[in-house]
Nucleic acid binder design. Structure first.
Length: 839
DNA sequence: TCGCTGGAATGATAG
DNA sequence: CACTATCATTCCAGC
C-alpha cells in the first residue's frame, strides 16, 4: 500500500496490454482496435476499477466549460474570463492548463475544493504490484500514499472528459468515446452525465436511438458500454488502447500528485515506475527502451514499432504545457519547422473503417518536421497531435485524433501516449537525422460526432467541423532546468470525404501580389477546379463587410481540374498608397467555395514585397527565420491594422481580410505560415507565398486574430484563461521570425496567467512556474487576461493589446458555407466579446 | 488476408 | 410536417 500510486500505474499498465497487442504493433491501432476490442477493455476496466478510486472534488466538471461553450453556441459572450480557458485547460491532463484554471470555481459556479484528492486503494491483485514496490526508488515510494492531494484538480481534467468516465471522448482519444466512456465512468465518475447508465440521449444533439449515445443506457458494467447497434467494431477496445485511455485520466492525476510531491517538480515517471509496470513495452521489445515522457499514461503505451526508439531525451515534466496552450515555433536558437506540409486533404477514417493511411504531403511524400538550432547530442521527442483549424486558438481537436500508422511502409518510429483526452504521437528527433523527422506514421481518426458531442462539457460541434491541423511540439530541456517548448502547426487539412471530392481547393498561387492595375496572370494550382469555376476577389472591411468584390477572368481554355489561369482584376482603387490585402476564392457553385486566398494589391510607391513563388518545401533554418523577422519589421504593414482594435483582447477581432497576414492573420490557413514552424517565416514576409499552400480563409468569415507581432521580443506563453482570445489557433507563432519559446522552469509550464515584465530579447524569457506556483509566473511572462482562450504567447516588449494583436481571421473553409454554422457561433461569441471588452 | 483507398449507399440534419 | 440539399457514417469493392 505504501506505493499505491505506483501500483495504480502498474495496474493500468498491465491489464490487457500485452495480450491485446499480440506483439503486433500495439500502439498502432489504439483507436481502431478500440472499436473492436472494446469489450475486453471494459472488462479490464472493471477489473481495475475497484482498485482505484479517484476523488476529484474539484469538479470534474469544467468550471466553465459548460457555460462557456454553451455561450458560444448561443452566440452569447465568450467570457474572457478564465472560465473559458478553464474549459480548455481541463481537457488537458498535463496539468499545465490546469494550473491556469480557476481553482475555486466549479462548473456550476459553486466553489470547488481547493485540492482535488486522489484516493487510491491498492489491492495488490497484481503480481506486478509487488514488483513495483520493490523496484521503486525509495524516493519515489515515499510519495506513494493512499490519498493524494492534487494542486488543482481542474488542471488535469476536463470536467467533461475528466472523468474517466466521461471519457474521453476526447476521449477522443478514443474514438470510442461512447464506448469506453462507460468503462471509465464506472470507475471514476458517478456523475450522471458521465455515467454510461445515464443516457447521453439528453445531450445537446438528438441522435437516433440507435445512435451510440443512446445505447449507453442499456450497457451494463459487464458489457461494453458502447455496444454499437450494428455490432459495430466499436464494441471493444484493445487492451492497450483501453489502458491508455484509462490511464490517461488516472495517470495524469496521479502523476500530477506525485509530481506535486516531488521537490524538483520534474519527475521522470519512467524512472519512477518499475520496469515491470511497463512490461508491455519490455515484453514487446527489449530493445525499445521507451521512455515515457508523458506523465500521462506514457508508460502505458506499448512500444510496437520495430524500429529502435533511441530513447530520445525525454521531456519529463509533470507539467508539460497543456495541448491547448499556444506555443511559439521558434525561440532563441531553436526553431521548429514543418518543412513539408501535409496535403490539404486527408480523408480521416472512422473506427468502423480500416486505416486510411498516413497523412501525405502534397509532393507525394510525407510531412517533414525539423528542429533547427538544436546542437545537443541528445535525441528529443517530437510530439504530434491533431489540432483544430478554426478561428479560435489552436487546441486539440475533439473530433479527430492522430492515428499511429505502422507497417512496412513506415520508416519513422513512433508511439502513442495520451495527454489529456488527446492522443499524442511521439516521434524521435535524432541528431543524426539533423533533428528532422519524416512523418509517415500519422493517420487521422475521426470520432463520431455523437460520441464527442454528448460528452459532458464538450460544446464544440462536429458537424462541418472537419478541418484539422497537425500540431507538432518539442520540449527542449535547458541546462538551467528550464524547458523550452516549441510548437508548429501545419496547414489546415480537410478530413471529410465530401469536401475533398467537391470543394475546390487552392494549394498554390503563382503570385500573391500585383500592382493595383492588375492584368497579370495568376496561376492557381489545386484540386476540384471545374470548367465553370469562378475566381472571385473580395475585399472586406474590418467589420466583415464587403468593400469590393469582383469576378476575375478565368482562362477556360487552359482549364484543368488542378489548374486555373486567372487574370488578376484591377483593384477598385488603382491609386492606393499602401498595399491592400484582399482575398479571392474559387467558386464551383453555391456552397462550394475554396478557402480564401490572400492577395495583395501593391501601390506603385510601395516597395514590392517578395513575391516570388516559394517552394513550400524549401527548408528553412532558424537563421533564415531570423532574417525574415527582420525583414518583416521593415515591411510596411499596409492593410494590416496592427492596432489594438484588432486584438481580440481589446475588442472583436475585426481585422479585415485585408489585414496583412504577416502579422495578424492566424487564420487556419494562415497559421501554418504564421504560426506553424513550417512556414512561419513566410508569414512574416508576405501574405501568401506562391508555391506555398495558399492561405485560405473561408470566404465570408471574419479573419482570425493572431498574436502576431514581430518576433524579436520574447513571447509569453499564456494560459488559456489569460490568453487573449485570439482568433487564430495559432501556434503562437513564431511565424514571423524569432520567437521566444515558452519556458518554464522545472518544466512546469503551469504557471500562472499573470504576466510580468520580461526581459526583452531574453532567449528564454518566459518561464513557467511550476504547478505549485500560483499564477505568478515568471518575471518574463506577460499575461493578457483572456477568457476562454488557450494560453497564448505574446511579445513581452509590446503592450499586450498590441502584441496580442490578432486579426480576426476568416475560417479557412474549403467551402464557404462549410463551417458556417460553427463559425457563426464563434463569430457571435467574438462579437460578444468585443462588445464586452469595449463595454 | 490485410491494409489502404476510392466510391457510394444510407440515414440523419438543417433549412 | 414534408421536402430537399447536405452531412456524417457505414459499407463495398478493387488493388
Amino acid at each position: 500500500m505504501q506505493n499505491s500510486c505506483l501500483q495504480v500505474f502498474s495496474k493500468f499498465n498491465f491489464g490487457s496490454l500485452v495480450p491485446s497487442t499480440g506483439g503486433k504493433e500495439t500502439g498502432l491501432h489504439l483507436i481502431a482496435p478500440l472499436a473492436t476490442n472494446m469489450k475486453s477493455a471494459e472488462e479490464d476496466a472493471f477489473n481495475y476499477t475497484p482498485n482505484v478510486t479517484l476523488s476529484l472534488p474539484i469538479s470534474m466538471g469544467n468550471p466553465c466549460l459548460s457555460t462557456q461553450y454553451h455561450s458560444l453556441h448561443s452566440g452569447s459572450i465568450i467570457p474572457m474570463s478564465s472560465c473559458h480557458q478553464d474549459g480548455y485547460g481541463l481537457h488537458n491532463n498535463s496539468g499545465a492548463s490546469g494550473y491556469y484554471l480557476t481553482p475555486n470555481l466549479r462548473p456550476n459556479g459553486a466553489p470547488a475544493l481547493e485540492s482535488p484528492r486522489i484516493e487510491i486503494t491498492a489491492y495488490g491483485q497484481f503480481p506486478e504490484d509487488e514488483m513495483e514496490e520493490n523496484t521503486l526508488p525509495i524516493a519515489k515510494r515515499v510519495n506513494s500514499i493512499v490519498t493524494l492531494t492534487l494542486p488543482n484538480a481542474d488542471g488535469y481534467r476536463d470536467p467533461s472528459c475528466l472523468s474517466p468516465a466521461s471519457s474521453l471522448s476526447s476521449r477522443s482519444c478514443n474514438s470510442e468515446a461512447s464506448s469506453y466512456e462507460s468503462g471509465f465512468s464506472y470507475n471514476y465518475d458517478n456523475s450522471p452525465q458521465n455515467s454510461p447508465w445515464h443516457s447521453p440521449c439528453n445531450g445537446k444533439r438528438k441522435y437516433s436511438f440507435n445512435g451510440a449515445p443512446c445505447r449507453h443506457p442499456s450497457y451494463s458494467p459487464g458489457h461494453s458500454p458502447t455496444v454499437s447497434p450494428q455490432g459495430s467494431p466499436r464494441v471493444s477496445v484493445p487492451d492497450e488502447a483501453w489502458l491508455a485511455n484509462t490511464n490517461q485520466y488516472t495517470n495524469s492525476a496521479i502523476v500530477a500528485a506525485i509530481n506535486a510531491l516531488t521537490t524538483d517538480g520534474i519527475v521522470d515517471l519512467s524512472d519512477s515506475v518499475p520496469l515491470k509496470s511497463r512490461k508491455t513495452s519490455l515484453e514487446h521489445s527489449a530493445s525499445m527502451s521507451l521512455k515515457k515522457e508523458n506523465y500521462c499514461g506514457g508508460f502505458l503505451d506499448v512500444p510496437q514499432h520495430p524500429y529502435p526508439w533511441s530513447k530520445p531525451k525525454p521531456y519529463i515534466s509533470p507539467s508539460l504545457p497543456s495541448l491547448d496552450w499556444q506555443l511559439p515555433s521558434c525561440s532563441g536558437p531553436y526553431s521548429l519547422q514543418i518543412e513539408v506540409q501535409p496535403k490539404s486533404h486527408h480523408r480521416a477514417h472512422y473506427e468502423t473503417e480500416g486505416s486510411r493511411g498516413a497523412v501525405k504531403a502534397m509532393s507525394g511524400g510525407h510531412p517533414v518536421v525539423q528542429l533547427y538550432g538544436y546542437m545537443e547530442s541528445e535525441p528529443l521527442t517530437l510530439q504530434l497531435f491533431i489540432g483544430t483549424a478554426d478561428d479560435r486558438l489552436l487546441r486539440p481537436h475533439a473530433f479527430y485524433q492522430v492515428h499511429r500508422i505502422t507497417g512496412k511502409t513506415v520508416s519513422t518510429a513512433s508511439h502513442e501516449i495520451m495527454q489529456s483526452n488527446t492522443k499524442v504521437l511521439e516521434i524521435p528527433l535524432l541528431p543524426e537525422n539533423n533533428m528532422r523527422a519524416i512523418i509517415d506514421c500519422a493517420g487521422i481518426l475521426k470520432l463520431r460526432n455523437s460520441d464527442i458531442e454528448l460528452r459532458k462539457g464538450e460544446t464544440d460541434i462536429g458537424r462541418k467541423n472537419t478541418r484539422v491541423r497537425m500540431v507538432f511540439r518539442v520540449h527542449i530541456n535547458q541546462p538551467s532546468g528550464r524547458t523550452v517548448s516549441l510548437q508548429a502547426a501545419s496547414n489546415p487539412i480537410e478530413c471529410s470525404q465530401r469536401s475533398a471530392q467537391e470543394l475546390p481547393l487552392v494549394e498554390k498561387q503563382s503570385v500573391d501580389s500585383s500592382p493595383a492595375t492588375g492584368g497579370k496572370t495568376l496561376v492557381l494550382n489545386g484540386h476540384n477546379f471545374l470548367p465553370d469555376s469562378k475566381v472571385v476577389f473580395v475585399e472586406k472591411a474590418q467589420d466583415g463587410h464587403h468593400l469590393w468584390e469582383t469576378e476575375a477572368k478565368v482562362d477556360k481554355d487552359s482549364f484543368k481540374s488542378t489548374t486555373l489561369l486567372v487574370e488578376i482584376p484591377p483593384y477598385r482603387n488603382q491609386r492606393i498608397s499602401t498595399p491592400v490585402q484582399v482575398n479571392f476564392y474559387v467558386c464551383n457553385g453555391k456552397r462550394k467555395r475554396s478557402q480564401y486566398q490572400r492577395f495583395t494589391y501593391l501601390s506603385p510607391n510601395v516597395p514590392i514585397i517578395k513575391t516570388e513563388p516559394n517552394d513550400d518545401y524549401e527548408p528553412k533554418g532558424a537563421a533564415r527565420l531570423s532574417v525574415h523577422s527582420k525583414a518583416y519589421y521593415g515591411l510596411p504593414t499596409p492593410a494590416m491594422p496592427a492596432d489594438p482594435g484588432h486584438c481580440l483582447v481589446g475588442g472583436y477581432p475585426s481585422s479585415s481580410p485585408t489585414s496583412s497576414p504577416k502579422l495578424h492573420d492566424l487564420s487556419p490557413t494562415a497559421y501554418p505560415k504564421c504560426l506553424s514552424g513550417g512556414q512561419s517565416h513566410h508569414a512574416g514576409m508576405q501574405p501568401a507565398l506562391p508555391g506555398a499552400p495558399a492561405i485560405q480563409e473561408t470566404p465570408g468569415r471574419p479573419m482570425g486574430m493572431h498574436p502576431g507581432s514581430p518576433d524579436h521580443a520574447p513571447l509569453v506563453m499564456l494560459p488559456p484563461q489569460m490568453a487573449p482570445h485570439l482568433g487564430s489557433p495559432g501556434t503562437g507563432g513564431c511565424s514571423h521570425g524569432y520567437r521566444p519559446p515558452a519556458l518554464y522552469p522545472n518544466g512546469s509550464p503551469a504557471s500562472s496567467p499573470v504576466s510580468h515584465p520580461s526581459t526583452p530579447e531574453t532567449p528564454f524569457a518566459p518561464a513557467y512556474s511550476p504547478p505549485q506556483a500560483p499564477p505568478t509566473a515568471s518575471p518574463h511572462l506577460t499575461a493578457i487576461p483572456t477568457r476562454s482562450s488557450p494560453p497564448v504567447l505574446l511579445r513581452e516588449d509590446s503592450s499586450p493589446p498590441t502584441l496580442a494583436v490578432t486579426v480576426k481571421q476568416e475560417p479557412q473553409e474549403l467551402d464557404q458555407m462549410y463551417l458556417d454554422d460553427v463559425n457563426e457561433i464563434i463569430r457571435n461569441d467574438l462579437s460578444s466579446i468585443s462588445v464586452h471588452s469595449h463595454a
